[in-house]
Write a protein that binds this DNA or RNA. Structure first.
Lengths: 195, 195
DNA sequence: ATTTGAATAAACATGTATGTTCATTGAATG
DNA sequence: CATTCAATGAACATACATGTTTATTCAAAT
């Protein structure tokens, strides 16, 4: 019979937390560099400078790592919020501000979004967050659409929702437009509809 | 010393060709169902009802199968050609006809294009054909842009090129538009710019 | 000084894919 | 009838990822 004794962790707990963070950040970097679906537990461990077993002790499986990874990444890279555009006076200014906010966000985070879109069907762990983000985008498009003079014109709303999508950013990027030009062009689409 | 004798293959050659075709079609079906990057030689062999070794005898490696597969698929699914729209009278009609032609093509071939876009970075064998198709699309957008009243307006051309892309079809599809509504909307973007 | 426990190091079993080798079958060809 | 050869069936070596087990190290906590 061993005597039970209270054992309050202080530095131990902190060390453990730090190891966990190293693992999460290694996973995050790999998700960005080679994409979620190619990110193996072995690679994460190697990158974190940790034994493979250590990863398993912190996370039951790949999905758990990915979840921790996603939420940590979103904390570091928060998507644009409505305050960035809802203060604008005119309709055009508001639409432009929102588009530009998202386009700049996409520029800074393009590798991750590229990979996330690509691997979404294969990696269940990112499907939830992706659906959530899409719903958010959808709502933003709807809100801005309603706030415009043309009221609830569905073509206006749909054009906004399309313009706000990452895939649209990527398409216009590949056509050589910088972020301002992209927002200009998408704004012109919207203005054309309002006529 | 064995006597050499001429040996003209007739049915043998035909049988061999048929086996090759079975392999190519199995690969094609798998590319469509699970995507190029998950399509293994083992799976192709199994699907074709053939030994794995038989696949290796017809194709040196995965890349060779994929190449044969791509060109065969393109023969069966030829992209829209300019004759489908260049006969149209007005600018609007021509733009609409071209957009609709591509949108209907994408609808019929969406699974393959979805997978091709997704796996393009991972599967070298499809990068060539994809680049070729993109160049074709790019040219189509440019031609139609030039043919319009607004002449060589770069925003017009870029909007057309964006509208013709598969990713745009997919984005508008996810927003609930049918192909006619997609073409209508993209046409409205173009018209708005011409103002 | 002793106990606790996070992390290491090394191995094992399992699964899957690749690419290659070899002997065998059996129908097409001469 | 004898020869040719596409395809089979089975095995082998290699590589890599998963998930688990065991014993060991060593600093933190008491």
């Amino acid at each position: 019979m061993t005597k039970t004794r209270r054992y309050t962790q202080r530095k131990r707990a902190a060390d453990r937390e730090e190891t966990r963070l190293r693992i999460v950040e290694a996973a995050m970097a790999l998700h960005e560099e080679i994409g979620p679906s190619d990110t193996t537990i072995s690679a994460i461990a190697q990158r974190a400078g940790v034994q493979r077993l250590t990863v398993y002790r912190h996370f039951p499986d790949e999905t758990a790592v990915f979840e921790a990874c996603t939420s940590h990444w979103l904390e570091l890279n928060p998507p644009p919020v409505p305050t960035a555009w809802e203060a604008c006076e005119g309709d055009d200014e508001r639409v432009y501000a929102a588009l530009l906010a998202f386009y700049r966000y996409y520029r800074g985070t393009q590798r991750m979004w590229q990979g996330a879109h690509r691997d979404e069907p294969k990696v269940p762990a990112i499907q939830g967050p992706m659906a959530e983000f899409r719903a958010y985008l959808h709502g933003v498009g709807e809100e801005i659409g309603k706030s415009c003079a043309a009221g609830g014109d569905s073509r206006l709303t749909i054009t906004l929702q399309h313009a706000l999508a990452f895939t649209t950013w990527a398409s216009l990027e590949s056509l050589g437009l910088d972020d301002e030009a992209k927002a200009d062009l998408a704004l012109a689409w919207v203005q054309g509809l309002e006529r």
